[in-house]
């Protein structure tokens, strides 16, 4: 496989990081978290292709995706619970939960 996907992995990871650092909406933060996970999954699969161990890489990718779903489900449940308390999705209101 001659394609070099490393720049794309870094761009995707950077986009996820940018989203996490700049956005204040909780759903947008979830999108950023997902982009980080997708960049990681792509890096795992691509490294398996490079090292000619695609089966092992795919088994790792499956586990990463499964854990990713659980993270998303917990995040959405937290969003739901937070919205019931504050009626919005702004992370600035989360500061009231400190202490």
């Amino acid at each position: 496989m001659s394609e070099n996907l490393l720049p794309y992995v870094f761009v995707l990871f950077g986009l996820g990081l940018f989203c996490l650092l700049t956005q204040r909406n909780l759903i947008k933060l979830l999108v950023g978290l997902e982009l980080l996970g997708k960049a990681t999954t792509l890096a795992i699969v691509w490294s398996g292709v490079l090292r000619n161990t695609p089966d092992y890489a795919q088994s790792l990718a499956l586990m990463v995706i499964a854990i990713e779903v659980m993270v998303v489900a917990i995040f959405l449940a937290l969003i739901n619970a937070f919205h019931q308390k504050s009626q919005n999705l702004d992370t600035d209101d989360l500061r009231r939960l400190k202490g």
Binding site: V45, G48, V49, A57, A61, I65, A66, V69
Partner: peptide
């Protein structure tokens, strides 16, 4: 395209 269809199917159905 990278030859990882199992991960592809999982990503498509779950992701």
């Amino acid at each position: 395209q990278l030859g990882a269809p199992v991960a592809g199917v999982f990503e498509l159905s779950v992701g």
